[in-house]
């Protein structure tokens, strides 16, 4: 994690984003999971949502440096895996192997 991403993680904490959003399905349920928001919707969309808010998400008033940092953090998280998991293998006794698992 670089300095900008680290700063973005702190911004994510400062505005308590976890109250509404999730990574890997862990967090609040009021908003969507953000694990792969950058690859699914693109950085520009993520940036626009954060800057302007939506009908259900308030504009939290982040300044441009904070928006740059949190988008960099989301891009960093995006690279760590896929959620919901893809290319899974369900074993006969109920466990699951995922493509992203350490080999």
């Amino acid at each position: 994690m670089g300095d900008l991403e680290r700063q973005g993680a702190l911004v994510y904490q400062k505005y308590n984003c976890v109250a509404c959003h999730q990574f890997y399905g862990l967090g609040g349920y009021m908003g969507p999971d953000l694990t792969n928001v950058v690859s699914n919707r693109g950085e520009a969309v993520a940036r626009a949502f954060i800057a302007a808010g939506t009908a259900t998400m308030p504009n939290l008033g982040l300044d441009s440096d904070e928006i740059d940092a949190v988008v960099a953090y989301l891009a960093f998280v995006d690279k760590t895996g896929t959620y919901p998991a893809e290319n899974i293998e369900v074993r006969w006794f109920g466990t699951v192997d995922q493509e992203d698992d350490p080999k």
Binding site: G25, L26, T80, Y83, V96, D97, D101
Partner: peptide, 10 residues
């Protein structure tokens, strides 16, 4: 069971 879907050892 909190982290089944986070990449980890089976």
């Amino acid at each position: 069971h909190h982290t089944y879907l986070v990449p980890s050892e089976t």
